[in-house]
Amino acid sequence: MDIDTPPVEVRRAAMHFGAIYAVDGIDLSVQRGEILGLIGRNGAGKSTLFKMMLGLLVPTSGSVHIEGIAVTSPAFRAIRRRIGYLPENVVLYDHLDGLETLHFFARLKGVPNQQCLEVLQRVGLLKAGRRRVRDYSRGMRQRLGLAQALLGTPSLLFLDEPTSGLDPEATRDFYTILGDLRASGTTIILTSHVLAELQDRVDRLAIIAMGKLQALGTLEALRAKTPLPLTIQLRVASLQLPTVIQALSSVHGLTITTIADGLCLHCLPARRMAALTAVIALGDEIQDLQIRDPSLEDVFLGLASQTP
């Protein structure tokens, strides 16, 4: 494994089914030890791009290299041992128990059976290892799916909607595991429709729309690309409201709306300091203040609205 080679390199990759371009000339390079969130609406092309990166679909044009090896090359077979994949809503084998399921995948990956107990423990399924998969809850099945993806200590993980069906505690545990993996140098690419989950946990985000890479970067970089207002929420005593509204009305670029216990101010990030200066000048008339930057969901919807 060459440390300098990006683990994932997608170059002008396109995949079309007849006249429909599911993926349309995407360029993407993922760095080692990075967590990349792949987001987009249903049918945007995320799953097709995932399948291309896993070598399950051959690009119509362009190329996909994993660990420096083209996914279409026979040598990619050896690379597959270092890849973990959790498909969306996968249903594993009902008549096998959890441990048997992992043994099956371990043998196919060439991983010693002893590792199965370790990953079962890691995903919190050790006690349920001898229960049939058909008796597992949805969350347990998802954790078993994650366990098989972790077999063989993969250097690259592809996770499609990994927290689907997990309760909040299991979701937190899942992201703890992901954090540990990143710390050990594992590169992770994941998709999720729960954008709030992703925004503080990924290094970069790739937004896919209509088969194209619409935006790529950190959340901050994406925020900068969208003219989305930040929100300043003020708690104001009702008697003071007219005075406060009058004082803030003179600030250029500030939109004021009244809410239950105060005011909500919206302004572009560039006007942040001007707005805050005006607010601070009001002194004790402001009981509390909260500043909220545009969330990933706001950014995503903002960018989506720019799509022709």
Binding site: L56, P87, V91, Q148
Partner: peptide
Amino acid sequence: ERGSLDLLLSLPVT
């Protein structure tokens, strides 16, 4: 249909 075909084919199996 179960979604496990892609998983199997992502492994070192032709």
